[in-house]
């Protein structure tokens, strides 16, 4: 079945705007009438990804495909890539700076949270080239 697609550009220049795309997506999912727990899981997963892209990769893009039975969120950036995915998936592991931690992020919960709130999380990454995350949330 054809999906309803939404595209968002994530601005990496301004940390204070980080999260705006996730807020927009949440509003669209609410308008489409999805159950609140589905909306929340999508929102948290995308928000974590969006914050990560701003912190680590100078922004990127998000594409959300909405199906009746699932929501697929693809986040893509041209940042530094993730050298050790297994390590990055460990709760508490973070390469964030003190400045980012002072802003309330960088606790090493981003990727683990994305996995926690989604049915599947696929990570394609290449050092020096970028990272593509594909997350699926079942409805």
């Amino acid at each position: 079945m054809a999906a309803l697609n939404f595209h968002f550009d994530i601005d990496g220049e301004d940390f204070s705007s980080a999260g705006e795309a996730s807020v927009e997506m949440k509003k669209k999912l609410r308008q489409l009438g999805f159950p609140s727990d589905v909306i929340r899981r999508c929102s948290i997963a995308m928000y974590e990804g969006e914050i990560n892209m701003v912190i680590h990769a100078n922004g990127g893009s998000a594409d959300v495909a909405v199906y009746p039975d699932k929501i697929v969120i693809v986040l893509e950036d041209h940042g530094p890539g993730i050298p050790d995915v297994e390590l990055a998936m460990q709760e508490g592991y973070s390469t964030s700076t003190e400045q980012i931690r002072n802003m309330g992020f960088g606790a090493g919960m981003g990727l683990p949270n994305m996995k926690r709130y989604t049915e599947s999380l696929e990570i394609e990454t290449q050092v020096g080239v970028g990272t593509k995350l594909t997350m699926v949330v079942a409805v």
Binding site: S16, K26, R40, S43, G104
Partner: peptide, 11 residues
């Protein structure tokens, strides 16, 4: 910071 509000919105 504004992310406090956005985080609250997500939750």
């Amino acid at each position: 910071n504004p992310q406090v509000v956005r985080t609250a919105m997500m939750m």
